[in-house]
Amino acid sequence: MSDEAEDRFDTIISWALKIGVVVSLCLIVAGTMIVFIHNGSNGFSLNTLSNMDSNTAVNSSEIHLLDIASGVASLSGMYIIALGLWVLIFTPISVVAISFVNFTYGKNRLYMFMSAIVLFNLFLAMIFIT
């Protein structure tokens, strides 16, 4: 790969990481503010949401990925936080995806194959394993 192409690749990745973190942080901050303003979210009081007891706390298993879109549309603070956290999880995944495209474009078969395995592991973790 030429130096110029490599430079462009590094810049794209740097931007993808930056945008991912900024968007995620904005969503998390906005969601938190809404939770505090509404004194809770999704029928849970602020007290319940901030409870950290391992048996009774509100945790991520109660927030289903498919409900996030409708939750965000109804401006639910908790779902906006959840969306922010998922944007965070997707940020490094997008970088691997960009690398995959870059290696494919640069005809680097070995690294194309390796980035495909990494993507496979990431999606395996997200969808199949519980």
Binding site: S60, I81, G84, T130
Partner: peptide, 12 residues
């Protein structure tokens, strides 16, 4: 996330 180990308020 699926196992419920993430407390959204704390993680935020």
């Amino acid at each position: 996330w699926r196992l419920g180990y993430i407390q959204p308020f704390l993680a935020a």
